[in-house]
Design a protein around this nucleic acid. Structure first.
Lengths: 338, 338
DNA sequence: ATGAAAGCGCTAACAT
DNA sequence: ATGTTAGCGCTTTCAT
C-alpha cells in the first residue's frame, strides 16, 4: 500500500518529520501557513499514518473492545444485545475508533476470554455488558490496568457504569397502577442473579410501600428465565391470589401473563391489568397493547463509549456511575382508558 | 501490564533476543533443549509479545475485518447475518485472529466505509457479505491490494467466494415437487438485484425443463423484498393461474403464500403444495410444517475465514470459488406424506 | 544453531 | 515554532 511515511511527506513539504507529526496530531505549535501546506501535501498524496507504528511509539491504539458476557447464541437472539452492538459500533465510528468484538461461544470459554481481554495490548479499553452476579470479566478487569466501563448495573463502587434507572422506572409504572386504583398488584420478577431484575423488584416494593400497601410475598413470583413460558406458568399462582394487576419484569414475561389470563377467561385490563418492561417491538402490537417502560439502549451505548474514552484519556476517580432515564409508555393493558 | 519484552526473556533464558523470537514464531533452527527452556521461561513469566511491535516489524496484524453490506438495522434483524457474525467470530477465535466489525448505518455511509476498509493498515484482509449487484465494496477491494473473500455469490471471476449452491438446491426441491406429481408449479422469486434470488429462479427453470415441463412466465412472480407480506400478495395471482405447487425463494415468502392459500379456502398440500428456502426456525413450527432447503451458514463462515487466511498467506490465483452443499428437508407442506 | 545489528514508522523529550 | 534524536518491541538478514 502506501510506501508513504512521515519522512516522505516531510521531504515533500520541506519540513521535518516532527512537524508533519504535529500537523497530523493536531498539535498547537505549528505556524498556520506551514500547517496548511503540510495538510495539502498529505491530501495530495493520500498519506495515512501507519497505525502499528503509532501504537508502538505512542500509547493509544484507538481500538476499543466490546465484550458481551453471554454465549453468542443468546446475544444474537436478543434485541437488547444486538442494539448495544449497533449503538457502540456507530458511536465508535463517529469517534474514529475501531471496534473489536469479543465473543464467547459458551460459558467454558469465558476464563480464557477474560484473560485475553486483560492482557490484550491491542485495545485501549473495553466495554462490558451482560454481566450477572458472579461474572468473571469485571473482577478480572478490576484486577488489571485495562480501562473499562460496563453497560448495566454493578454493585462495585469502583466500576464505571452506564445503567438505566430500573428501580425508579419500576416504581413509576407500579405507582401508575396504584393511581389507577389497583390494590392487589402482583409481580413476576426476573432471575435472582440478574442485577436489573433485582432493582425492578425493589422498585415494585418501594412503590407499594410509598402508597401504604402491604408487600405480600405471595404476590411475588420469580422467573428463572425471561421467557414467555415462564410468564405464563407463574401467572396461574398469581390468579389464584386474585391479583387485580401484574407487573412483569420484562415484556416477554408480560406476554406469557396475558396468555394465561385470557385462558383463564379473564379480561385485560378489566379484571387484571398487565404492565411490562422494555417496550419491545411487540409491545405495541399485542392485544391489548402493553403499557411498559421504554429504555434508550442507543443512548446507553453512546454514553458508554464517551465515558470509556474519557476514562482512557483522563482516568476517573471516583468511578463514574450514570443512570439514564426511562419513559413510561401508557397503552391499554393497564386500564388507563377504562 | 507486561513490562516484559523479548529482551527480558532473552536475559532470563540466557540467550539472545533473536533466539527467543525464533522460539515464539516456531522457527525451525533452534536446538530443542534451548527451545524447551525458553518456552518454560515464557510460560513462567506469562510473557506476551507486543502486538504493535509485531505488526510494525513483521507484516501481519492478525486482525481480520468483517463487513456486511447492509445497514446495521437490517443486519441485526436477520438471522442469516447474525449467524455469519457468530460463525466468523468463532473461527477467527480458533485461529487466534482478532475480529473487527465494520458496519454502515445507512447506504450513505458506504463509500466512506469502503475507503476506510481499503486503506486500512490494521487488518490483514476482509470478509465481505451481503453484497448485491451494484455493490461498492467488491469493486473497491478489487482495485486495491487488500486480500478479501466474499460470502455469497459474485459474478466476477477474480473474486474468491464461498457460496451455497442455490441453483442446485432450488433445482432439487422443485424436482422433488415434480416427482410427487405436481404439474403446474409456480414460484415466488426474490428481488432481481439479489444474486442468490437469481440462482434460485434459474434452478426452478432448470428443474422444469429437465422434466419437460413448460416454463410459463405467468407462473413466475417476483417479490421486491423477502417479506411475508410480499409472499401473501403475490400468491393470489398464482392461485388465479391454478397452480398445484409453489416454490418460494425464502421461507418467509412461503409463510405469506401459506396464509394466502388458507384464506382462499384451499388446502396445503392437498390443493397446493408449498416449499421454501432457508430452513428458518419457524419452518418446522408452522402448520403444515414447511418442506425447505437447509443451508449451513456456520460452515460458510468457517470456510470463509480459512480461505481468507490462505489467500493472505499464499495468495490465490486463480480465485477460489467454493459452493457449499445444501440439504433438502422434507416435511408436510410438499405433500410427500399424502 | 545462535547472536549482532539494522530497521519497521512513528512519538515525544529535548534542544535550538 | 521547528528540528534533532532517542527509543517503542519486534523481525530478519547477515555474520559467526
Amino acid at each position: 500500500m502506501s510506501a508513504l511515511t512521515l519522512e516522505t511527506i516531510a521531504k515533500l513539504a520541506g519540513v521535518s518529520r516532527s512537524t508533519v507529526s504535529r500537523v497530523v496530531r493536531n498539535h498547537k505549535s505549528v505556524r498556520s501557513e506551514v500547517r496548511e501546506h503540510v495538510l495539502q501535501v498529505i491530501d495530495e498524496t493520500g498519506y495515512q499514518p501507519n497505525a502499528a507504528a503509532q501504537m508502538l511509539a505512542g500509547q493509544r491504539t484507538n481500538i476499543i473492545g466490546l465484550v458481551i458476557a453471554e454465549p453468542a447464541s443468546v446475544i444474537f437472539n436478543d434485541r437488547y444485545y444486538t442494539q448495544i452492538i449497533q449503538g457502540v459500533a456507530r458511536e465508535l465510528n463517529q469517534q474514529n475508533q475501531t471496534l473489536t468484538l469479543f465473543l464467547s461461544h459458551d460459558k467454558s470459554e469465558e476464563p480464557l476470554l477474560a484473560k485475553r481481554l486483560v492482557q490484550n495490548q491491542l485495545i485501549d479499553g473495553v466495554i462490558v455488558c451482560g454481566t450477572r452476579t458472579g461474572d468473571l470479566f469485571v473482577p478480572a478487569l478490576l484486577n488489571s490496568t485495562m480501562p473499562f466501563v460496563v453497560i448495566g448495573p454493578n454493585e462495585n463502587r469502583q466500576v464505571n457504569f452506564i445503567d438505566i434507572d430500573s428501580f425508579s422506572a419500576s416504581k413509576e409504572i407500579v405507582t401508575h397502577l396504584i393511581r389507577l386504583g389497583r390494590k392487589r398488584i402482583g409481580t413476576i420478577a426476573g432471575p435472582k442473579d440478574h442485577p436489573a431484575a433485582i432493582s425492578r423488584l425493589q422498585g415494585y416494593k418501594e412503590a407499594l410501600q410509598e402508597a401504604d400497601l402491604l408487600v405480600d410475598d405471595r404476590l411475588i413470583t420469580i422467573a428463572s428465565y425471561f421467557t414467555e413460558t415462564m410468564g405464563y406458568e407463574l401467572t396461574s399462582s398469581l390468579i389464584t391470589q386474585s391479583v387485580d394487576a401484574i407487573f412483569a419484569a420484562s415484556d416477554t414475561l408480560a406476554f406469557g401473563a396475558m396468555r394465561a389470563i385470557k385462558e383463564a377467561g379473564l379480561l385485560i385490563p378489566d379484571n387484571i391489568a398487565v404492565v411490562g418492561f422494555d417496550d419491545s417491538a411487540e409491545a405495541a402490537m399485542v392485544q391489548p397493547a402493553l403499557t411498559t417502560i421504554r429504555q434508550d439502549i442507543f443512548a446507553a451505548s453512546t454514553q458508554s463509549v464517551r465515558t470509556l474514552l474519557e476514562v482512557i484519556e483522563h482516568g476517573h476517580e471516583p468511578a463514574k456511575q450514570i443512570y439514564l432515564p426511562t419513559q413510561l409508555i401508557v397503552r391499554e393493558s393497564c386500564g388507563s382508558l377504562l
